[in-house]
Design a protein around this nucleic acid. Sequence first.
DNA 1: TCAAAATAGTTCGGTATCGAAATATATGCA
DNA 2: TGCATATATTTCGATACCGAACTATTTTGA
Lengths: 149, 149
Amino acid sequence: MGTKYNGSDEEKVALDLFIKLNRAGDSVNRRMLSRLHSSNLTIAQFGVLDALYHLGALTHGELAKKHLRSPNNMTSVIDTMERSGLVTRHRSIEDRRVILVELTEKGRSLFEEVWPGHLSAILDSMNTLEPQEQCQLARLLKKLGTGLN
Amino acid sequence: MGTKYNGSDEEKVALDLFIKLNRAGDSVNRRMLSRLHSSNLTIAQFGVLDALYHLGALTHGELAKKHLRSPNNMTSVIDTMERSGLVTRHRSIEDRRVILVELTEKGRSLFEEVWPGHLSAILDSMNTLEPQEQCQLARLLKKLGTGLN
DNA sequence: TCAAAATAGTTCGGTATCGAAATATATGCA
DNA sequence: TGCATATATTTCGATACCGAACTATTTTGA
């Protein structure tokens, strides 16, 4: 958003907040992106690894919901990951429309290799704020996010 | 991030915050995206319109910096917008490496048409929070963002 | 003054993302 | 039972985005 908008104070506060929300999110993700880059993982791929590691086999639809993305997206992400041998697909027996995605051993060990650094990067980032500031921020973000859905 | 990670309380708070930050940003942007979609604008394109409208002619580099994107990106975004007749490019006379991007009349009027709805959508979103909550959130996000750069 | 370094943009190859439309399968209802 | 509808995924065409390598131009410094 431009910085030269002339509106009421109320509008300025809201716009300013909108901008800062985006900037903060961008900054955090940019960090993660450059971290993951050395493992040849994208954020989307890492999200899939993470979900599968912690939750076990999931369908395209479940993965998409987990990351607020459309399912047609997952096809391409999973394609790439399957090509690099990180996951396997197989069709469900009960419902033959469904495809289950599962970590391979390679995917599992890559995640275990990358996760500690990723976690500590998140901790580092967030520790810019005092613990009670973190809680406060989380509360406000939750309220904002909940109001939007 | 998975929801089943077992770490210290401190880690849980930070991870939780990280997730909520992303979710809130996604929710807000998703809204904007669906709003802009009816004008055949992407978020990137709208950002360019906005910057050019409020700041006048800018170079690729300035536009990229404004949106925390790489300049090679701008080439493609500006290409698309030039094709749809929203902006023009011309090479600077003083420094012939530089390309200045400017709004066309079509771009200007499209922005003026879209901006009010966009602004009120932002206001609506942010008004989920009380004014003093908005200020508090902005302050925390700023502190977080500043610590990251 | 002129070659090396810096800067602005583009091109290339690859992934991610979307919406719309297609395919395959499952479910529900008359 | 059988057709209409719903659901899961894929395909298609388009845009966005990244890093790396490239071209053109300007600036710097010996």
